[in-house]
Computed example of a mutant assay.
Amino acid sequence: MELAPGLRRIGNDVIATHLVVTGDGITLIDAGLAGQWRDLQRELDAIGRATSDIRGVVLTHGDSDHIGFAERLRRDHGVRVFIHSADAARARGEEKTKPAIGRVKAAPLLRFLAYSLRKGGLRTRWLTEVQEIAGGQVLDLPGSPEIIDLPGHSPGSVAIHVPAVSAVFVGDGLTTGHVLTGHQGPQPAPFTDDPAAAAASLAHLEDLQVDWVVPGHGAPWHGGVPALLAAYRAAMEVPGSDQT
């Protein structure tokens, strides 16, 4: 699915992965679930590209629903996988956390679980080799992605700024569609290690001039960073909110 020239999406508002497509190749942002491999192949066929055009995978963090087919790309196709050093062990399956789930509603939860199971959420292969990165780096990949520290959801969570497509990919730094409650709009993401740190980290995005803010869960935001952050902060102030 095309969001804008050079910016494409596979998956849906439950779990999505994104492609930055340039004349020099493709940068993949996150790797979703293992079963989304077929979705990736269909998307590549639709735009006349091949797996060999993928130059790298940049992970926003190391949780299982973001690394799904990354090891397959690395192992079978030699694609480098980049992740912040603070989340490298998580992506290799060496470290796990169990953050509080918070409030849930039955229908959104069942939709999330059903989609995850259908797309191979239980077949995740942990990475065996990663390229460690840090905030402030600009990677030598199509679109020249810039890494922005966004700790909180996990220690090594990052945002990925790609000026070539006027977008910033925020992973689970926030969500626009809560997979456990169904609440829509910018808000804290569930399964977050340190919610206070995650909220504070969003200040790192304030000066970005982009058309798209793209989370890993929920609809892409096409209203600019200032409006998104204002909506996020307003959501956090709602008394009795069920968004966290």
Rank of each mutant, 00 (worst) to 15 (best):
S166K: 04
T17Q: 07
A46T: 13
F112V: 01
I160V: 14
L110N: 05
S154N: 08
A100K: 15
H84I: 02
G102H: 11
G120W: 12
G23W: 01
P188Q: 13
S201M: 04
T192Y: 06
L174F: 06
H183C: 04
D39M: 09
G173F: 06
E95I: 15
G23N: 12
L139H: 00
L28S: 02
D193L: 12
T244F: 08
S64L: 12
L109P: 05
G152M: 08
A106Q: 10
D149M: 03
R8M: 03
L73Q: 11
I148Q: 07
G32E: 05
A159D: 07
G223E: 13
P155G: 09
I147T: 03
G173S: 14
H222G: 04
T22V: 04
A227G: 03
G185P: 09
R111T: 10
L19M: 11
I29A: 03
E146T: 15
D53N: 10
P145T: 09
L7R: 00
E146K: 13
V57K: 01
L205G: 03
G68N: 10
L229M: 13
G102R: 12
G120L: 12
D149L: 04
T60S: 14
V214K: 02
A91C: 11
V225H: 02
I29Q: 03
S52C: 00
A189F: 10
K98A: 14
V179C: 12
W221M: 07
W212Q: 06
I10G: 02
M236E: 15
Y232K: 10
V21I: 13
V79L: 12
G62D: 02
H84K: 00
I101H: 08
I47C: 10
L28G: 04
L73N: 07
M1I: 05
A235E: 15
A189L: 04
